[in-house]
């Protein structure tokens, strides 16, 4: 399944101040595949970009532990943040613990290109604060119901890239991919949508290509 990039891709450039690492938020409902996508991006990009990850676990350090177990990055490049039962608060209303974690990683690893902040699983209204993430990806999966893009919500409508994941499951759960893609295009005003199956394409090539473009774009716009 190919990417459905709209005409408006990258129309507002991320411009991190001072040439620091680009901060990329990855959000979406529980079980949609945020951690698996994060791991895939780390595996594909770690040889070309200096990377670090902050996870926002809802209950345990499961996500950080998964990334460490999979050895996608060295342990000291992965930090887990606790969210006090409010994952959306930690990425939106009160981002201080996440900022702390990101800045500690940047200090420990000077010259980082990209810091991925993975949200704890949340609902469709969760959106990263612009104070925390320069760009954000929202991850849905086809098993969550093919009416989710139509229902919209801040995450679906406003994220810089919408990923509709687990497309290999579509025939099994009776989800209509064409419908999901066209509904998403309608509420997203031309911003890109990628249909992915990490089982069929473990490197999430469309998403990785988008991340490469965003990081390159932020370098061009960064002050000298």
């Amino acid at each position: 399944m190919g990417a459905h990039f709209g005409h408006g891709a990258d129309h507002h450039a991320a411009t991190p101040p001072g040439g620091r690492a680009l901060r990329l938020g990855i959000g979406g409902p529980v079980g949609s595949g945020k951690t698996a996508l994060t791991a895939a991006l780390c595996r594909v990009l770690r040889d070309e970009l200096a990377l670090a990850v902050v996870t926002n676990d809802i209950y345990t350090t499961e996500d950080a532990d998964f990334l460490r177990r999979e050895a996608v990055l060295s342990d000291d490049r992965i930090t887990a943040v606790r969210t006090g039962a409010c994952p959306h608060t930690a990425i939106r209303d009160d981002i201080s613990a996440n900022l702390d974690a990101v800045e500690a990683l940047e200090q420990r690893h000077p010259g980082l290109d990209l810091v991925i902040v993975e949200s704890g699983g949340d609902n469709l209204t969760a959106l990263f604060s612009r104070g925390l993430a320069d760009r954000q990806i929202f991850v849905l999966d086809v098993a969550g119901g093919d009416d989710v893009p139509r229902k919209g919500g801040l995450g679906v409508a406003a994220a810089d890239l919408l990923v509709i994941n687990k497309t290999d499951l579509a025939p099994l759960v009776g989800s209509d991919l064409e419908l999901m893609a066209s509904d998403a295009a309608r509420v997203r005003d031309g911003k890109p949508v990628a249909l992915t199956s990490l089982r069929e394409a473990p490197g999430a090539p469309e998403v990785a290509a988008w991340v490469r473009r965003v990081v390159a774009g932020s370098r061009e716009h960064a002050p000298a």
Partner: peptide
Amino acid sequence: SRLPAGGHAHSG
């Protein structure tokens, strides 16, 4: 309590 100073992640 809505001051964005990280308090929401601590239960005292």
